[in-house]
Simulated assay, not measured.
Amino acid sequence: MSIGAFDAVSAYGRVLGATQTPKIAETEAAPETGGSFGGMIEKLVSETATSLRNAETASAKQVAGKGDLIDVVTAVGAAETALDTVVAVRDRMVNAYSEIMRMQI
C-alpha cells in the first residue's frame, strides 16, 4: 500500500485534531502563519517519538496486567500512523533532493 505525502500529512492532522483540544483564545488572537520547514519536521519527529513512547508505556502496562487492551491498540495505532507519516515525508524529501541533484545548471 502506497501512502502519498499529502495523504499522510492529512491523516496525521486528523489524528492530532482528534487527540488535542484547540485553544480558541490563542487561535483567534494569533492566526497561524507559515513556520519554517525545519520547525515542522522537528515538531513531527518529536510528536512521533512521544507517540511511540506512549505506545511502549501502554504495552508495558498491559504486560504487567495493569493496562487495558483497548488502550494498547489505540496507542499502537496512533504510533503506527505517526511513523508512517514520518517515513512518507522522509521519502518525499529524499526524492526531492535527488531531483534537485539531477538538475543541470
Rank of each mutant, 00 (worst) to 15 (best):
V94L: 07
R90P: 04
A11C: 03
E56T: 06
A5M: 06
M40N: 09
E26W: 00
V72G: 13
A60G: 00
M40T: 03
R53P: 04
G67F: 05
M93N: 09
R90W: 10
K23L: 03
V63P: 01
Y97S: 09
T74S: 14
V76Y: 05
A8M: 05
A49T: 11
T50A: 15
S2Y: 10
L52R: 10
S10H: 01
P31S: 11
Q104S: 08
A25I: 14
N95V: 14
E80K: 13
A60T: 13
A11N: 00
A60Y: 10
I3F: 13
V86H: 07
I100L: 11
L44V: 06
A58C: 08
S10G: 07
D91W: 00
G17D: 05
E56R: 03
E28Q: 06
L52S: 06
S2G: 14
V87G: 05
M101I: 12
V73F: 15
S36F: 01
A88G: 08
G13V: 10
V45N: 04
A64M: 09
G65S: 04
A11K: 04
S46D: 11
T33G: 09
P22D: 03
A82Y: 02
G17I: 03
A64W: 12
V94E: 10
I3C: 12
N54K: 10
Y97F: 14
L69H: 15
L69M: 14
G65D: 07
A5P: 01
I70S: 12
E26L: 00
K61E: 03
G34R: 15
I3M: 11
T21N: 05
L44M: 06
N95A: 15
R92Y: 09
E47V: 08
A58L: 11
A88W: 00
A60Q: 13
T81G: 03
F37W: 07
G4L: 11
A88N: 01
K61N: 02
T21P: 07
V63D: 04
Y97M: 06
T48E: 02
P22Y: 08
T85C: 05
A25M: 07
S10Q: 01
A25S: 09
E99S: 10
A55L: 10
V72W: 14
I100R: 13
T85L: 07
L83V: 12
M93R: 09
G65A: 02
A29K: 13
S51H: 03
M101Q: 11
V89S: 00
L16I: 00
I105T: 05
I3W: 15
Q20D: 04
A60K: 14
S51D: 03
R90E: 12
I105Y: 10
Y12R: 02
G17W: 08
I100V: 13
A88K: 01
D68W: 12
G17N: 06
T74Q: 14
A29F: 03
G39N: 10
G67Y: 11
L44E: 06
M93A: 07
R92A: 15
E99M: 10
F6W: 04
F37V: 11
E47N: 04
A11Y: 07
V63Q: 11
A82N: 04
F6E: 13
E26M: 03
A30R: 02
K43A: 09
K61D: 02
T57L: 15
G77N: 12
M103S: 14
E47L: 01
G4R: 08
Q104Y: 12
A82K: 06
T48C: 07
S51F: 06
N54T: 11
